[in-house]
Amino acid sequence: MRRVNKDERTRISFTLNGRAVSGEAESRMLLTDFLRHVIGATGTHVGCEHGVCGCCTVLIDGVAARSCLTLAVQAEGRAVTTVEGLAAPDGALNALQQAFQRHHALQCGFCTPGILMSFTDYLARNPHPTEDEIRDVLSGHLCRCTGYAGIVAAVRAVSAGNSKQPS
């Protein structure tokens, strides 16, 4: 049984974008704060800290989740993927990122990392979503700049691109 007492700091380790990372934290530290301020992976953003806005969405073992509703200690031993893990090592954007640029799917870019992570999970499960399915997944995110139109268009374009590739 893993146990962390309230007045204790513990070492927490997991893989982040394929690399082992670790750091010390209290049991109460949120995964958002651990990623951003202990590890220094600031691409994951904090928009509400009560699970509504979706800015902080990351993948935990490949599954999109709100990192503000996750304790750092809950990520122990897991594979965490964040927006920093999407582009190629040389910085080349992946297909989803490219589509976001092409369709002007972001303005201030603050909500964008979370949205990218949601669709990274979802498109892996369902590479050819309908527009309704895209909207359903996107409805778990708040964006104040774009009115969402470009985001829907970008994901549709990626989905169309998926269909061109041999399955």
Binding site: M1, R2, V4, D7, S27, R28, L30, V73
Partner: peptide
Amino acid sequence: MKPRRFDYVRPDSAEEA
């Protein structure tokens, strides 16, 4: 908006829980 302190336990079985 940060939690208060608490002990965290992650039991290995329902029995432990």
